[in-house]
Structures are given as C-alpha cells and as structure tokens.
C-alpha cells in the first residue's frame, strides 16, 4: 500500500511527504515507543496518538517510512523538520487509533507480526 493510498483511506492531511508513491509493507499502532522498537520491521507505517520528538526518532531508528498521527494530533514544526530530514512522511487524521488501524487492515495492509511469521 502506498503512502498516497494511506492518506486517501484515512482522509488524512499531509504534513510532510517527499514521495507519496513509497510502498508500505506493514503497520504498527502504538503510543509506547519501546513496543514499537521491539517488534516493528519491513518498511512500516506507525500510527500513534503520542506527539513528541521521540516518535520521529523511533521511526528513524526503525527505518520506518511514514507516521500517521491519529485523533487529530498535529506534530510540532521541530518534529516535522526532523521527519523531513529523515525522509519520513507525516500524516494526520481525525480518526481514532482503532478506526484508523481497522481501515488500513481492511484495505490490505498487514500487521507487522503477520509479516514476520
């Protein structure tokens, strides 16, 4: 699923995105960054309601391609600068975490655990 498709499915606002055609292979929804660091792989998108610089850093360390802030959360300008410099796309959706994850899953994007196994 491309970042463009994620944006459309979630009716999301694009905060920064260099290449909307980047392919995303899996997804992870969490507000605990250590859980993300423990389990995520494979060109993933991170869905989170947590807003701080460590969300971007976590995605950077994991080589993630996209972050979606749920519940209308918006990243700060500093966070966006960091994301852009790392080539990470940032979206924001009004949908809640459960809804957003469900929509992407129903759209064919697998959970990270399923891909690992």
């Amino acid at each position: 699923m491309t970042i463009r498709e994620i944006k459309e499915l979630l009716n999301a606002e694009v905060c920064c995105c260099e290449n909307p055609d980047v392919d995303i292979l899996s997804a992870c929804g969490s507000d605990m960054m250590s859980d993300v660091l423990a389990y995520v792989k494979h060109q993933a998108v991170l869905l989170t309601g947590l807003v701080n610089a460590q969300v971007i850093r976590t995605a950077e360390m994991m080589d993630m391609r996209c972050i979606v802030f749920v519940r209308s959360k918006k990243p700060t300008a500093d966070m966006l600068d960091l994301a852009c410099s790392c080539g990470i796309a940032v979206l924001s959706t009004t949908k809640r975490m459960y809804e957003a994850c469900g929509i992407l899953y129903a759209g064919g994007l697998k959970g990270n655990g399923e891909i690992n196994e």
Binding site: D31, M32, S34, D35, L37, A38, N52, T58
Partner: peptide, 17 residues
C-alpha cells in the same frame, strides 16, 4: 516518562534483543 512513550520496561530487553 510513560506519558512520553517510554518506561514500559522494554529498554534493556530490547538492547539484548
């Protein structure tokens, strides 16, 4: 610290992992 997304007791286990 948990409110910031860390402190879940996964730090050292992740480092080992």
């Amino acid at each position: 610290i948990r409110a910031l997304g860390f402190g879940a007791g996964m730090g050292l286990p992740n480092m080992k992992r």
